[in-house]
Design a binder for these strands. Sequence first.
DNA 1: GGGCGCCTTGCAAGCGCGTGCAAATGCTGC
DNA 2: GCAGCATTTGCACGCGCTTGCAAGGCGCCC
Lengths: 336, 336
Amino acid sequence: MSQKPFVSAQEVAVRAGVSRSAVSRTFTPGASVSAETRRKVMEAAEVLGYHVNHLARGLMRNESGIVCLIVSDMGTPYRSSLVRTLTQHLQDAGKIAMLVNTDRFDGSVDLALRQAIRYRADASIILSGMPDKSITELCLKNGQRLVLINRDDAQPGPFRINLDDGEAAGRVVTAFVRAGCRRLAFANSEAGTPSLMARERGFVEAARAVGLEVLVERYGPTNYDSGRVLAQRLLTRRERPDAVFCATDLLACGFLDAARHDFSISVPDQLCMSGFDDIEQASWSSYQLTTFAQPIEAIAREAVTWLGSDNVADPAGSLSVRLHADFVWRMSIRGG
Amino acid sequence: MSQKPFVSAQEVAVRAGVSRSAVSRTFTPGASVSAETRRKVMEAAEVLGYHVNHLARGLMRNESGIVCLIVSDMGTPYRSSLVRTLTQHLQDAGKIAMLVNTDRFDGSVDLALRQAIRYRADASIILSGMPDKSITELCLKNGQRLVLINRDDAQPGPFRINLDDGEAAGRVVTAFVRAGCRRLAFANSEAGTPSLMARERGFVEAARAVGLEVLVERYGPTNYDSGRVLAQRLLTRRERPDAVFCATDLLACGFLDAARHDFSISVPDQLCMSGFDDIEQASWSSYQLTTFAQPIEAIAREAVTWLGSDNVADPAGSLSVRLHADFVWRMSIRGG
DNA sequence: GGGCGCCTTGCAAGCGCGTGCAAATGCTGC
DNA sequence: GCAGCATTTGCACGCGCTTGCAAGGCGCCC
């Protein structure tokens, strides 16, 4: 059954009456083949249903065409959009995405990178978690390129794509103040990822700069239910906040639902809110959330462009890029 | 730079003072190696950072360990959850997922399958679109297994996983009637996929069986905005429906938002609603949508179990499985 | 002690492909 | 017609791995 299922270049060669090299060259862009030979080969390949074996090709070329996407929580709106856009761009660049799910446990990022090495992936793009330093070195030593998205890591080697989280947080403060808010709060999860913490820090500092203290609350994983819990905690305070910046849209949705349905608080009249990510749900009419748009297209473009370029060992500098998150005005802050 | 980046079994062999075969056997479960040799090999592999080259292994074994996931709209909640769960189960079974995005255009399902062949994927799982018959035959002839999820196709060969969409639709009718609704409507997209149409047909037929006609409206792609448009169309009718079954939760969310915010209709008091999929948002307190749960875990389990089994050519029969979608009662139908 | 059988090990072939090298081919200009 | 050149073609090797086969090592029992 599984004896000799796939047709090989050899078989195409005999049917086309040429040598096997000719077949190989026909499918190698830029190789030297006459038009006539190419035609014969293509014809034979068509009728036989021949497809180049990329496993073997990868073996020879030392370039598999595989790019490994390492991600957790991919059921989440922001993550799934990013994965979607990345795969699209990779395909446009002639690459193919291999997907590794790291939901199970923490160490699985390292395991994922090992898997990437086994399949000789040309590169790995890490959307979640943080690999151990020894593993990243192993990858780099093996000629595998690494991209970290929103991981904000200092170690050299990987290409790092980050947002201006801190600056964005500052803009929220301005917007809140302009809306007349004085009692600011920040709702965060306990995930503690660099970008989440950067938003928190940026918010607190910008508020302090205009003379305001921020109530910071952290709870659970970064999802809808945590947003509800955070609302429960923040909205039952004696001094109830009149403006809340949620580290994530998902948190904001949960927060907003709890505020409206459990506390009958009107947004934005009694409470101003902002989120981050601009997930699709933020634009739904039940939320109309003012938020920051993740520059997903730009992130994907930066990532695959860098993968395509040849500047492997740039002397520490252009190995990092900082993208801008646009403020999307909707209805959750007064006075847009 | 990219000269000899990866360490090979040969290098491990010389360092361990054994033959290259011994290294190979050490990493082949069930092969004959003495404990002493294995120890030496493992030690050498560890310090050298050796990882079996799965490209080469796949070449020899005629089994790459790759399973291709073919999917469009993966930014969507249901799709991304399914992808998430599938990759998880595949990894647990020792396989790895390759992701092909078919958002671009229709023919890309065929292109995706060709890509799967090139990488000698052991199997392809199709979540979106429908491949051309000639391509599926090419895959099967090449020994590649095929799984169709919710594609409801009759052609033999692929393993088909479907839901009891029609029966589910019948249960909605019962619930609507029990709630006292008489003017039923079905809100569908124009995608026309088998499962969507099965729900529509099942709903119309079950309604007819109890003597009710159904207002059917179809519009656009299967997303939130279409739901809003459908509401616009159905809720402005002279005889306004008092119960709407939306083919999808995403449609239902859009419909519900439009009903409440644009028409000030109270759900479920003035209008009963049901969706399908049980996406995460259906449980959010702004929606509290009564719907059917996609048995995502069961789907993934069935798929990878079949991939692991050896019954390739089962005489047409168990090549198809029909799963049950549980009714999830929330607040969008009266009298739960 | 020698014959027998089992476990382990090395050898070598081959999976499908790309590519350097040399031979062959075709073409131009005299 | 032939030297000279550019282009095309075939041969053969090797990428890193698995695995059948036979040789080697070892213990057992008569």
